[in-house]
């Protein structure tokens, strides 16, 4: 018997069975496994379980009355719930599936499940002129999302910005995509504080920790990730004043609407910015060219000259 037939038999049996089946029952009753070689069975069963879980099939382990591990696929968790999606909503999701870059195949596969009953034309691709790269092909996002939805704590190795590696235990609250990167926000159990972790700096696979948790009602993901690079750092409570000359006065008016703006000399506009990292502030200002000047504080101005130093001719 081919392996794919054995897998279909396993899904059918665990999904249709009213009570969980032990490994011994699976070995003796499910077609494709039947063998007297317990060790050989164990190897193929482990492999099959991993394969099916990877596909999103919820094989759960429970203890039976004799305290032996037994397996079942709970129908509630297997079947797609009826979302009652209207034709216009499906069409809109079709746009999303066509626009998402890098994982379009997965989006389309998901959409098929959602639109099994839709007429064929609802699935025909429109001419889409948008693309959204949300870096969704990162392999850790799937396991993190599963943990987050089931509210199961996780553990992983993390490399922080200064290059130090440590093992972290987290109750994941939210996945946030910002500036082209994914961040995992949650309660760091060891530090008992909400922290945010860049998913690309996770250096291990995601392993489950024991227990369950609740997300606090007042949790706000924006409060933990909606910060600019110059707001992240060690410097305390600095306020910088940055001047945009006449030619670039439109920039802060258009792009920094939440910060206080005042008119400066000669048609310039000055913006007051909270700053915790002078190097990040200087680097940002350099990127906007010589129409931008950090007016205050003096240490930021010194920092700018130090920063430019390697590119300036010796006096």
């Amino acid at each position: 018997m081919r392996r794919i037939e054995r897998l279909i038999n396993l899904i059918a049996a665990l999904l249709d069975s009213r009570r969980p089946m032990t490994a011994a029952e699976i070995r003796t009753r499910i077609a494709g496994y039947q063998t007297d070689n317990v060790e050989a069975f164990r190897r193929s069963f482990e492999r099959d379980k991993a394969e099916l879980r990877e596909m999103g099939i919820p094989i759960e382990v429970v203890k039976d009355e004799d305290d032996v591990d037994a397996y079942i696929i709970p129908p509630k968790k297997y079947y797609m719930p009826d979302l009652d999606l209207q034709p216009d909503e499906l069409a809109a999701l079709r746009l999303a599936a066509d626009a998402v870059l890098g994982v379009g195949d997965e989006a389309t596969a998901g959409l098929r499940k959602l639109s099994l009953d839709a007429a064929d034309d609802a699935m025909s691709a429109p001419h889409v002129v948008w693309g959204a790269d949300v870096a969704a092909e990162q392999p850790l996002l799937g396991p993190l999302l599963s943990a987050l939805l089931e509210k199961r704590p996780v553990a992983f190795d993390y490399e922080s910005g200064d290059g130090k590696r440590s093992s972290r235990h987290l109750e994941p609250y939210s996945l946030v995509h910002r500036r082209g990167n994914w961040y995992l926000v949650g309660r760091d159990v060891d530090r008992d504080a909400v922290r945010s972790f860049k998913v690309s700096r996770i250096r291990s696979s995601i392993t489950p920790d024991a227990g369950r948790y609740e997300v606090p009602q007042d949790f706000d993901p924006d409060a933990h990730t909606g910060v600019e690079p110059w707001e992240l750092g060690e410097a305390n409570d600095l306020k910088a004043k940055v001047r945009f000359d006449e030619k670039l006065a439109w920039w802060p008016q258009q792009n920094m609407p939440r910060l206080p703006l005042t008119d400066g000399p000669e048609g310039s506009v000055e913006v007051e910015m909270p700053v915790a990292n002078l190097e990040a502030l200087v680097s940002w200002a350099v990127g906007l060219g010589d129409s931008v000047e950090i007016v205050d504080p003096p240490e930021a101005r010194r920092h700018m000259l130090d920063h430019l130093g390697p590119f300036l001719a010796a006096p």
Binding site: Y79, V100, G104, A109, G142
Partner: peptide, 29 residues
């Protein structure tokens, strides 16, 4: 004789994330 296969499997985390994140991005237009 296959009633247990009469509804599709739920979305995998990867499928859900792709649709959801892509949809959120273009919903901002």
């Amino acid at each position: 004789m296959a009633d247990y296969f009469s509804a599709p499997l739920r979305l995998t985390p990867g499928e859900a994330l792709a649709l959801y994140a892509g949809g959120q991005a273009i919903a901002e237009l």
